[in-house]
Design a protein around this nucleic acid. Sequence first.
RNA 1: CGGGGCAUAGCACAGCCUGGUAGUGCGCUCGCUUUGGGAGCGAGAGGUCGCAAGUUCGAAUCUUGCUGCCCCGACCA
Length: 437
Amino acid sequence: MRLSRYFMPTLKEDPKEAQIASHRLMLRSGMIQQSSAGIYSWLPLGHRVLKKIEQIVREEQDKAGAIEILMPTIQSADLWRESNRYDDYGKEMLRIEDRHGRDMLYGPTNEELVTDIFRSHVKSYKDLPLNLYHIQWKFRDEVRPRFGVMRGREFLMKDAYSFDLDYEGAKIAYNRMFVAYLKTYARMGLKAIPLRADTGPIGGDLSHEFIILADTGESEVFYHKDILSLETPEDKDYSADELQAIVDKWTGYYAAADEMHDPDNCPIAKEDLVSRRGIEVGHIFHFGQKYSEPFGASVAGPDGKETLVSMGSYGIGVSRLAGGIIEACHDENGIIWPEAVAPFKVGLINLKSGDDACDAACEDFYGKLQNAGVEVLYDDTRERAGGKFATMDLIGLPWQVTVGPRGLKNGVFEVKNRASGEKEELSAEAALQKLVG
RNA sequence: CGGGGCAUAGCACAGCCUGGUAGUGCGCUCGCUUUGGGAGCGAGAGGUCGCAAGUUCGAAUCUUGCUGCCCCGACCA
């Protein structure tokens, strides 16, 4: 992409409404634009990041055996009356009336809808286990939206719903998601910690939330220091026992959110305990028959008896992760994208657009990167050098390639790693080699 | 939902107290000079001062109401 043809409205100064790093940087780098409180448009740069996160989540869900569907944002109140949540959910639910006076709502979650789909079509235990997920916009009318996309009212979320014949099956489904989550966050360059969670209004007796560490996190977490050195599960099909072993290993270490942590009764030694701030980026629940019962979601078991299915739900805040990753990965100059979610892998800086030698070298290199399938943002504008460097640092692409008259005299480009700040001078061929693959 | 704050050009702000029809920096346009980490000079464009009522000869400025946004707390992917 040529910057001169792109739409990337960056800001030199901090918008005053943005207090935390990710919000500030997302606005300054032109990723998002606020539409109203807690509701954002995603501009090209932000949209690319959102899609990358979404795709990683999708791939890991698919690998874990979940099947993608897409349910609507607008739901009928009738379904929510069946589960009795229409009245219970409170003002967080955005209620809408259609022209016929029917009560509708903008879905804050999809247990009702997915259970309705399930009960309409699944009648036999032979069709289980089943795990359906979608990645869809949700709306929760938060009293006080804040922190940009981290705590918006409208947000993109992956939510999966598992259906099993019994608790044993449901637990396997739960563990499968647990492991998929560890892999998902690791792919994004994040270290996520599973915390035993309070099950809250959704209810249930098996639940974990996944948090990533960031100094600006919303809540304090306490954990055993060794949990950070645990190995991420491999990319393979684990047996039920293997899944359980992985979950046991990860949950064997102490990890607790502020409200669950009692400093006087902490089971681990002080020197092993670490306290940092965290951002919740996922939450998984087993809730058994909480919805299958009111919805009559049952299947015929092997014995011919109708059995209410045992369910769980598994959320990942996709749009929140965009902010969360920035909270975890930035410095005073801007964002430092992990490569897997970066909007582009390489930023190519032409220090002297209009200069024949610089233009030719850049055009050639730009074409080669593109042919090699490397996503590159080519700054071909007439902006001054300082401005170009500052913008590249701000938007945080993992690699910067600087092409200027000075380097060209010696036949070299400067290749800079945004994360480490390391720079090296390489020939065009060597630079290409380094950036491809 | 309790408490507080803010609203003036695309962005950040001054002006308001003590009423007289709007200004600074950045950004934008044009020209010249510059050119390896957010340049300099010159010339421009851009504002129903959030909305509505009131007070007044006259309101960005004073009064009232409304709306929007932000912050602290209680609550959440």
